[in-house]
Simulated scan of single mutants.
Amino acid sequence: MKILVTGTAGFIGYHLAKHLLERGDTVVGIDCINDYYDVKLKYARLKQTGINVAELEYAKPICSESYPNYTFIKLDILDKEQLQACFQKYEFDAVCNLAAQAGVRYSLTNPEVYIDSNIKGFLNILECCRHFKIKHLAYASSSSVYGLNKKMPFSEHDIADHPVSLYAASKKANEMMAHTYSHLFNIRTTGLRFFTVYGPWGRPDMALFIFTKAMLEGKPIEVFNNGNMLRDFTYIDDIIEGIVHVIDNPAEPNPNWDAQNPDPATSKAPFRIFNIGRGAPISLMGFVEEIESQMNVTAKKVLLPMQEGDVAETCADVSNLDDTLNYKPRVSVKTGIANFAAWYKAFYKVGKRQLVAVS
């Protein structure tokens, strides 16, 4: 297929583009390369897919030196005119929208950027899918949409209408926007609720990266809710396999959908929602202990109360993904952290309590 992947300088987008390219799809990747975190890591990801970052200019297509089936364009999904030109030129079969302003905590202090990227930008994607007859749109949602919901495990078939951060609210809004376009314009859309993604090339604002860096530098780590947290950590390879299963199986209307007892995960329109998580949460302290083991360091812990916008526990019900697409994530946290540790040590030159980024 010819697939547009947005956010390909990002963590998940980079891994997805690489996977699709290696199986033979034609991929066009776009990313605005903002400075939410160190752009050097974003450039390094692009280099891994053969993109010469020295050639980067806004809206200029760059062909990969490693994958003849890959083109990257530095482009903001808020730029409706250039986005439309991209859709018109490449005639995509499918779109996977991973471009978004990420981060729960960042949304507490910078709310405007979430409305711009996650709402306005996503609207531009939907409009392009509408006008250019895209066969399937898959897009990133988040486990954070479950918010105040205490029913465990989190199921797509349950109501999720009480988010506790603007980031979560923007992702829930994406699902509702997608359903509207599925209903009005018969666009096949599938929302993907990711659960705490981690692994090599991960984001520096996520717990695994923050904890590892601090431990190696001999600095204390901040452990919220006094460590009484459970997270359904999901390894990046499992996330990518889930996304690919979804891309290859476009959403269909649910013929049994009942308006008197509506299922939030499906519709009479070609709309679906899937959790992608391991379904086996571990304690935050257990996660820290595994990092300590892999990095051969002992963390200095600062116990703090729960932070605003956060939740104490996440756990994915993955039966819907398994039943519908015959897929279930499998990589253990032990294996996942070991793989991250190997990447981290290779990507960074690690001295005693000192880190120097590889240029």
Rank of each mutant, 00 (worst) to 15 (best):
T6V: 11
G7Y: 02
I12T: 01
G13K: 07
H15R: 14
L16T: 02
H19D: 08
R23F: 01
G24C: 10
D25F: 03
D25K: 06
G29R: 02
N34L: 07
N34H: 13
D35C: 07
Y36A: 11
Y36I: 10
K40R: 15
L41C: 05
K42T: 07
K42G: 05
R45I: 00
T49A: 09
N52S: 09
A54G: 15
A54M: 05
A54E: 14
L56Y: 06
L56E: 05
K60I: 03
P61H: 07
Y67L: 03
Y67W: 09
Y67Q: 00
P68N: 09
K74T: 13
D76R: 12
E81H: 10
Q82H: 14
C86E: 00
F87A: 08
Q88K: 10
A94G: 12
A94N: 13
L98E: 09
V104T: 12
L108W: 10
N118L: 03
Y139P: 14
S141F: 11
S143T: 03
V145P: 13
Y146T: 00
K150H: 13
K151R: 12
F154A: 05
E156P: 01
D158S: 12
D158R: 07
H162T: 12
P163I: 04
A169Q: 10
A169W: 00
S170V: 01
A173M: 07
M177W: 00
S182G: 05
S182A: 14
S182H: 03
R188S: 15
R188H: 13
L192H: 05
F195C: 08
F195S: 05
Y198V: 01
P200C: 10
W201M: 07
G202S: 11
I210S: 12
T212V: 11
L216D: 03
L216E: 00
L216K: 02
E217Q: 14
I221F: 06
E222Q: 12
E222T: 12
E222K: 15
F224M: 12
N225G: 02
N226F: 11
G227D: 08
N228W: 02
D232C: 11
T234Y: 12
I236V: 13
I239R: 05
I243W: 06
P250V: 09
P250N: 13
A251R: 02
P253V: 05
D258E: 01
D258A: 03
A259F: 14
Q260N: 15
N261E: 15
P262I: 01
A265P: 07
T266L: 02
F271H: 11
F271D: 06
F274L: 01
F274M: 03
N275W: 08
A280Q: 14
L284V: 00
G286P: 06
I291F: 12
E292Y: 07
Q294S: 11
T298C: 10
K300I: 10
K300R: 15
L303R: 06
L304W: 09
P305I: 02
A316E: 02
L325K: 02
Y327W: 10
P329D: 11
S332I: 09
V333H: 10
T335F: 09
I337H: 12
I337F: 08
F340P: 00
A341F: 03
A342H: 09
Y344G: 04
K345V: 15
V350Y: 02
R353E: 15
Q354I: 08
S359L: 15
